[in-house]
Simulated assay, not measured.
Amino acid sequence: MKNPDRTPVNGTQDPQAEPVVRLGCVSRVYGGAKNRVTALDDVSIGLERGTFTAVMGPSGSGKSTFLHCAAGLDRPTSGAVHLDGVDLASLREKALTTFRRERIGFVFQAFNLMPALNVVDNITLPLRLAGTRPEKGVVDEVLEQVGLSGKRRSRPGELSGGQQQRVALARALVTRPAVIFGDEPTGALDTRTAAEVLTLLRQSVDVAGQTIVMVTHDPVAAAYADRVVFLADGRLIGALDRPSVEQVTEQMQQLGTWSESFALRQSGDGVRR
């Protein structure tokens, strides 16, 4: 019988029960005294395993900085980031690079594929550069998962935009990462193709238990997520669970008004947030 609270009998907490991504009082400040910009302002949040989280906010709200700090691409000015139980601040640059390669997947708006390499070689390139190989059968598994089993030897120029983004997703999945971070992964796709890619992301959570954190400006894309969190002026100011497109759109419209009002209130101190 499974332990319902996932706490082992020896009293130690099961690490699988902890948030896979946890930000504690994270701030990120750029510039000096005269041109200080606070991109993140005391952000605290935990993101659960096996969930799909969308991050939204007006332009300049700190979405990309949130993703970069959470994924270990940038170091916070203050606060702590834990990913898969590891305090990222404890890792030096080389160890952090290895950790990102092994435990984190990335999917960007640009597909970032090598045009001279076929699908399989593009998927496995990061592993080969690191001197490792995927586990036996994993490449076939992820190709099946993203619907590209028949395109193994095709090069990117022979694929549609949606198929190229599927290759990028397979590349992110092949290491079985703790988290996949997406930065506007459907921003370069047409509506129908974007829906296909978003459905694949949704299925990777529902079927494979993957954790996904996606920055997006699109309410339709956000509605595929389990939860949408909203940033404005570097602060977390709200969230919606299992939202509709209409709910997300309404919240973003309200955020635009709030952000303009906040900027006016802050204009006297010379700090742009």
Rank of each mutant, 00 (worst) to 15 (best):
165 Q>D: 08
168 A>W: 00
109 Q>D: 09
197 V>I: 08
144 E>H: 09
187 G>M: 01
168 A>M: 03
89 A>D: 13
147 G>R: 00
199 T>A: 15
135 E>D: 15
23 L>E: 02
15 P>A: 12
257 T>S: 14
110 A>W: 09
26 V>Y: 03
155 R>W: 10
158 E>A: 11
58 P>L: 04
63 K>I: 04
33 A>T: 14
242 R>F: 10
63 K>H: 06
69 C>I: 09
155 R>C: 08
259 S>P: 04
160 S>R: 11
124 T>Y: 04
182 G>H: 01
135 E>L: 15
178 A>L: 13
34 K>T: 15
28 R>V: 12
124 T>A: 08
139 V>Y: 03
255 L>Q: 00
111 F>M: 07
98 T>H: 12
169 L>D: 02
247 Q>W: 05
192 R>T: 15
107 V>K: 01
230 F>I: 02
148 L>H: 05
69 C>Y: 01
3 N>R: 10
71 A>P: 07
111 F>E: 02
22 R>I: 07
184 E>M: 05
214 M>P: 03
138 V>G: 11
81 V>H: 03
52 F>W: 05
12 T>E: 15
106 F>G: 01
54 A>V: 01
187 G>W: 00
210 Q>Y: 07
88 L>W: 01
244 S>T: 09
67 L>S: 01
148 L>M: 03
123 I>F: 04
69 C>V: 11
109 Q>R: 06
97 T>E: 13
142 V>Q: 04
109 Q>M: 05
40 L>A: 04
87 D>G: 12
79 G>T: 04
131 G>P: 05
32 G>E: 10
246 E>L: 14
106 F>L: 00
37 V>L: 06
209 G>V: 14
82 H>W: 10
238 G>I: 06
125 L>M: 13
206 D>E: 13
36 R>F: 03
76 P>V: 03
19 P>T: 11
187 G>H: 05
1 M>W: 15
78 S>Y: 14
144 E>I: 10
111 F>K: 08
20 V>R: 00
45 I>L: 12
234 G>L: 00
71 A>E: 01
190 D>N: 07
93 E>S: 13
81 V>E: 01
197 V>R: 01
36 R>I: 09
271 V>N: 07
137 G>H: 10
218 D>L: 03
14 D>N: 15
62 G>H: 00
230 F>E: 04
85 G>H: 05
74 D>H: 05
97 T>G: 12
142 V>M: 06
134 P>E: 02
165 Q>S: 09
166 R>S: 10
200 L>D: 09
149 S>I: 13
67 L>D: 01
171 R>D: 02
110 A>D: 14
164 Q>D: 08
214 M>T: 04
236 L>Y: 05
19 P>H: 08
205 V>R: 03
100 R>P: 11
176 R>S: 12
160 S>E: 05
32 G>F: 04
214 M>A: 02
218 D>I: 00
41 D>S: 14
57 G>V: 00
94 K>Q: 13
213 V>T: 07
253 Q>M: 14
105 G>N: 05
179 V>T: 07
69 C>Q: 07
60 G>R: 00
24 G>E: 14
117 L>S: 08
27 S>N: 11
153 R>K: 15
61 S>A: 02
253 Q>H: 13
115 P>W: 02
155 R>A: 06
186 T>N: 05
270 G>H: 07
13 Q>Y: 13
246 E>F: 09
146 V>I: 12
63 K>Q: 05
255 L>V: 00
189 L>D: 06
26 V>G: 06
155 R>L: 06
